[in-house]
């Protein structure tokens, strides 16, 4: 391990530039409550990894979505494991974000000069919730269908623009195959892209400003 790193460093000088952010100063008195952000990011990495794997077998079509889920669970080697990891990591991802938010709120770390990071963090939470909502439809079973039917119907209650917005989300008057492929695309392309950008901003800001001192 050490020799491999030395070999790399001799040629590319990798150690010095990485020291800057691997060996950062952190304030005294930090505790495990400060780990929730990192924990959430770990779950995000698990979600990204298992999600990439699931996309190999999942078929986002009205006729075959449910069948492909059953196939992943029963036929594919470790399919049940990968799908369960994705499902549970999603739940724990949301929980970790909430705990992280509570910690930031409790230690008042949102105050200037970190207000922009709080906003980006809030957007991250919204993107995570949107990912959860769109991912929930993909198994295409009764629970998924009706959850989305009810969830998207709420959009209709927005004054004036409600009907148009709901049609934009569903892609048709009812939750249908059009909704399924729409949600699939949003779930695996749009939202992860947004999430990656937001997290990049989140981490760069914390790198610049450092962790807030405990009160």
């Amino acid at each position: 391990m050490g020799r491999m790193l030395a070999w790399l460093d001799e040629r590319f000088h990798v150690i010095k530039p990485h020291r800057r952010f691997l060996q950062r100063r952190i304030p005294d008195g930090l505790n495990y409550a400060y780990c929730f952000g990192g924990l959430a990011f770990t779950f995000f990495l698990v979600l990204a990894g298992t999600g990439l794997l699931l996309s190999i077998y999942y078929i986002p079509s009205e006729k075959e979505a449910y069948r492909s889920i059953v196939m992943i669970n029963e036929t594919v080697l470790f399919g049940w494991l990968i799908r369960s990891l994705h499902k549970w990591a999603a739940s724990f991802f949301i929980v970790s974000i909430i705990l992280h938010t509570i910690r930031v709120f409790a230690t008042r770390s949102y105050r200037p000069p970190r207000e922009l990071n709080w906003m980006v963090g809030s957007l991250t939470f919204l993107v995570a919730m949107a990912s959860a909502f769109t991912g929930y439809l993909l198994p295409w079973d009764q629970r998924a269908y009706w959850a989305t039917e009810v969830g998207t119907a709420m959009i209709q209650t927005i004054p004036f623009a409600g009907d148009a917005l709901m049609l934009a989300v569903r892609g048709s008057n009812e939750v249908s195959g059009a909704t399924l492929i729409r949600f699939y695309s949003i779930h695996v392309l749009f939202l992860p892209l947004c999430m990656g950008l937001l997290l990049w901003m989140h981490f760069h800001m914390i790198k610049r400003q450092g962790i807030a001192k405990r009160l």
Binding site: G49, L53, I56, M71, V76, L77, F78, G79, I82
Partner: peptide, 22 residues
């Protein structure tokens, strides 16, 4: 570091098994 790389190795093995067609 050792645990990290062991875990990564196991994960890669599981991923490879998952990707291999039934």
């Amino acid at each position: 570091v050792f645990s990290f790389f062991s875990l990564s190795g196991i994960s890669l093995g599981v991923a490879a098994a998952f990707l291999y067609p039934a």
